[in-house]
């Protein structure tokens, strides 16, 4: 089930934020590519990239929140998260996407596509977890 309150948007989604990849390279958040996440996870000893497919998008408990149901990894585990509509997820091969891209762009100047059912997002799990 979803958590009771959506998580506020953290500062690193603001356009121009400096992100450090696992190999030490610095990139702006808006310049990140799918390969950056994949290569960083390959270097990481603890974290593993998983594919999380958007299965459902429903209204959340507050007007600006949505509950997104993901199917995670090879096991297709069902995971729900409640987030603000402007919360961006990184979609494989596409880049930043949110349920309300206009609001994400307005608040964070981060260009976004519309997050849709069927989109495959980058997510993380712990290595060794089965």
């Amino acid at each position: 089930s979803a958590s009771s309150s959506p998580v506020a948007l953290p500062p690193f989604f603001m356009r121009g934020s400096i992100i450090q990849l696992a190999d030490g390279e610095l990139k702006r958040v808006e310049d990140l590519k799918t390969e950056d996440f994949i290569q960083s996870a390959e270097i990481s000893s603890e974290l593993k990239i998983d594919s999380s497919t958007v299965e459902r998008i429903d209204s959340g408990q507050s007007p600006n929140a949505v509950v997104i149901q993901f199917s995670v990894g090879e096991l297709k585990a069902q995971v729900c998260v409640e987030v603000l509509v402007e919360y961006p997820f990184f979609v494989f091969g596409q880049g930043w996407s949110s349920c309300c891209p206009d609001r994400t762009t307005q608040l964070f100047e981060l260009s976004c596509a519309k997050l849709c059912v069927g989109d495959v997002c980058v997510s993380l799990t712990l290595r060794g977890m089965r």
Binding site: I19, F70, A77, T125
Partner: peptide, 25 residues
């Protein structure tokens, strides 16, 4: 004079949701 302030640097993994699948076994 304005002292240069260090720019915050965020680790790549902070941008990615941590979605832990439920353990099946």
């Amino acid at each position: 004079n304005v002292e240069p302030r260090s720019v915050p640097v965020f680790p790549w993994h902070s941008l990615v949701p941590f979605l832990a699948p439920t353990q099946s076994d």
